[in-house]
Simulated scan of single mutants.
Amino acid sequence: MSANVEYINPENTSPAQGLYSNLTKVRAGDLYFISGQLSVGYDGEVVGKGDFDAQFKQVFKNLGDVLTTVGCDFNDVAKFNTYLVASQHIDNFMKNRRELFPSLFATSDYAPNTLLVVDRLVKEDFLIEVEAVARVRD
């Protein structure tokens, strides 16, 4: 976690139901609002058609690439919004997060996440989309 972004799970509130915190405190500074990242390779083609695990990995790779280009990393993320196209993917999403997040974050505290199940994404081949808000580093 960066010195500018603090994840908080207040006492006397219901606990988070997964690998996320209930809120984020962002100290003064500019914010990046990162559009939803999809499972698209550098060639513009869908990566992992029909394979949730492959799409999950590509989505977070793409998100990491965007963060890197502006001098940030996952420790600067203040909030995620995640969109899945089927409730059957929720358990797999949670498993993938448990496996990936310890390598992305400096601590075991993670940014808040809102998880939504939607009818579809921009193309039917996409199974997951993740958008984020990140704080600019000083």
Rank of each mutant, 00 (worst) to 15 (best):
residue 1 M to K: 13
residue 1 M to G: 13
residue 2 S to W: 04
residue 4 N to V: 09
residue 6 E to W: 00
residue 7 Y to K: 05
residue 7 Y to D: 03
residue 8 I to E: 10
residue 10 P to R: 13
residue 11 E to I: 12
residue 11 E to P: 07
residue 20 Y to P: 03
residue 21 S to H: 07
residue 24 T to C: 10
residue 25 K to F: 06
residue 29 G to Q: 05
residue 31 L to E: 03
residue 35 S to E: 11
residue 36 G to T: 10
residue 38 L to K: 09
residue 38 L to Q: 03
residue 38 L to I: 01
residue 39 S to A: 15
residue 41 G to T: 12
residue 41 G to D: 04
residue 43 D to Q: 08
residue 46 V to S: 10
residue 48 G to W: 03
residue 49 K to L: 09
residue 52 F to V: 03
residue 52 F to S: 00
residue 53 D to V: 13
residue 57 K to T: 10
residue 57 K to C: 02
residue 64 G to T: 04
residue 65 D to F: 09
residue 78 A to S: 14
residue 78 A to G: 06
residue 80 F to W: 09
residue 87 S to H: 11
residue 88 Q to W: 06
residue 90 I to T: 07
residue 93 F to G: 04
residue 93 F to D: 09
residue 93 F to Q: 05
residue 94 M to R: 14
residue 94 M to Y: 07
residue 101 F to N: 03
residue 101 F to L: 12
residue 107 T to A: 12
residue 108 S to R: 14
residue 109 D to P: 01
residue 109 D to K: 13
residue 110 Y to R: 02
residue 111 A to M: 06
residue 114 T to I: 11
residue 114 T to Q: 12
residue 115 L to Y: 06
residue 115 L to I: 15
residue 117 V to W: 05
residue 119 D to Q: 12
residue 121 L to F: 03
residue 121 L to M: 02
residue 126 F to P: 00
residue 131 E to K: 11
residue 136 V to K: 15
